[in-house]
Each structure stands twice: as C-alpha cells, then as structure tokens.
Write a protein that binds this DNA or RNA. Structure first.
Lengths: 160, 160
DNA sequence: CGCTTCGTTCAGTACATTCTAAACGTTGTG
DNA sequence: CACAACGTTTAGAATGTACTGAACGAAGCG
C-alpha cells in the first residue's frame, strides 16, 4: 500500500464489487480499476501488487484470465518485467464470454427436447422457450448487439 | 428420490449447471428443470423436495428469490400447500436482474470521473468507456433487446 | 380441540473459492 | 559466474456460500 488516496481506494472497491456482481473475482475488478486510473497506463505485476497491497500470486493468477479474455493486454517489453494495460474497448470480449454461457442453456433445453416425447406438448413448449431464449441471446446479440455497441461507442466518443 | 429416470436427472443437472454459470445457485436450476418437465406443471414445495431428493429447506429458500425475480409464480390455491409453476416467458425478468447489475459499473465509473481531474484525459477516457458500456447495456438492451426477444419468440412460437 | 400436514427459520456442517506465503525457474546484470 | 529481480506455482489458511436436520408456527381435518 504505497499511499493510495482514499478516493482511488473507493473506486477500486466499487469496480471490484461490480466485477463480483457479474461473476468475476473481486481482484480482477481491483486490477481493472487500477489500470484505468494509473499513470503510466502500463503496469507490471509487482507494481500492481504493491499498489493494490496484494500478493504477487493473486495478481498473477487473476491477470491471466483477464488477458485470455481480452480485457487486458500484455505489451512487448524489453526487460524481464511484463507490462499490462487495459485493452481499449475490451468489454465486447466480456459479452462474448457471457453469451458463450448461454449455449449451455440451449444445449440443456435441446437435450430435454430429445428426451421428452412428442406426446407431451406442454413440457416441450417450456423447453423450447428456454432453448429459444438462449439461442436468441447467443446469436442475435452477437450479431446486432455488438454492432450497436460499436455505433453507440463511436457516437459517444465523437461527442467528447 | 421417487424414481426419477436418468434422462431427467441429466436434464436437471444440465439446467443446474447452466444456472450456476449465470450466477444463480444450482438448486434454482434443478427446480426450474423439474418444473419444465413435470406433470402437472404446478408443484408444491414438498413435491419438489421429494422429486429432487433435497430438503424442504433448500427448496424453500431457493424458490423465494425465483418468485421475486418472476421466474416462477405462485398460484392461488385452496389448501395449505403452495403451488408453483414456471412463469411463461419469465426469462425477460432474468435479463432485468442482470442489467441492474450493470448500473453498479456505471456508478463506479461515474464516481471515478468525479474524482479524476480534468487534467488527466487518458484516465477519463478509460473511465468513460466503462460508463458508456454499462449504460449501453442497461438502457439500449432494456429498450430494443426485450422487444426483439418478444418478436423472436412470437416468430418461433407461430412456426411450431 | 388434538392431530397432521405444510412451509419457514435457525444452527451447524460441508464444500468451493480466494487469498497469502514460500519455494522455484528464468532472465538480465554487475 | 554469482547475484538480483520478476513472475509462476504449490500448499495451506481463511472466507463465504449452499445444503441439511431439527425446531417452530400456522392452517386444515378428524
């Protein structure tokens, strides 16, 4: 803890809570929060560990999924230290992860339809409803939603 | 466990896993799976507990959030037993809950913007990005997405 | 009015997750 | 070539969550 002002501490905790609410570890949120406000925007693992007053192990294990998920990116660096920074507009990757989970629901419902006989239309109706919803999320969102987000973002950015 | 066939057991486990992946307890998924395929579609707490081979306590505690979230509904019943069934098309409620979480992210970013001075445009850029994304999810989705889902669902249902 | 049935609540337990500390491998550096 | 710095991995501890069993309150039924 190298003198993080209390306002930044609150920001980190808020982003951490947000990450927790969407199913990610709190540490990821704290890292992401730190990377949003730090200067310079690129930070090494030990810098993050020191700033967040956490062990390097926690940072190391938390950063890898974030990198694989496209939330942060590792910059080519000369020395032995890794430099991480936020991937601009990397939230879209988060959406993709969330939507991939929807396929599980679609598959479950599909399995149910393969098991429940044709002579039980009510049950099939409910299963089909679940399948349709999950498919809708996984496909339509992937097509339309991400495009709308890009437009929305571009509009916002141009008005700043 | 009153003779649930293995196919239904697998269905319950699949739906349970799906619920887990989106942040809900597995028990909720098992209950939802059971309510999709059971006959009659209305079930009491003790019936569910017996069918799922779980304690009534688990069912009781799991059902209340589902009811409050609009995923299942309680029917008016004459006797002392509560009758639960799936709310037709109740998934939209799930979306609303997920989107409510996005407001946390928007608020966190907004707080960050109120703290980071105007003299740090890079940091403000990153914070604004998070805010815009969360707001986009919370608003645009609520407007367009739910409408599209209704249309998608109606189309699917008419083609069955 | 006892008795039974149904659902709820509470205390305790089992489980999974997340963090830390310490040991390790690797890579620059004097 | 010894040393130091950085990141990774593993084992262990702490925390939080989910489930069960038992006690309880309420509501029909004899």
């Amino acid at each position: 803890m190298t003198g993080i002002p209390p306002e930044e501490a609150e920001l980190l905790n808020r982003v951490g809570l947000f990450f927790e609410m969407v199913g990610a570890p709190r540490t990821m949120g704290r890292i992401y929060g730190r990377l949003m406000v730090c200067d310079p925007p690129e930070q090494s693992l030990t810098e993050l560990a020191e700033a967040l007053d956490m062990s390097k192990a926690s940072i190391s294990t938390a950063v890898r999924p974030m990198q694989e998920g496209g939330l942060v990116e590792r910059l080519p660096s000369s020395g032995r230290s890794h430099r991480y920074r936020i991937t601009p507009g990397g939230f879209t990757q988060v959406l993709n992860v969330q939507l991939a989970r929807m396929r599980l629901g679609a598959e479950a419902a599909e399995f149910g339809l393969s098991v429940v006989g044709e002579d039980r239309p009510e049950q099939r109706e409910r299963l089909a409803d679940l399948r349709d919803f999950c498919e809708f999320c996984a496909t339509v969102v992937n097509d339309d939603f991400l495009r709308q987000w890009d437009e929305y973002r571009a509009r916002k950015r141009s008005s700043r």
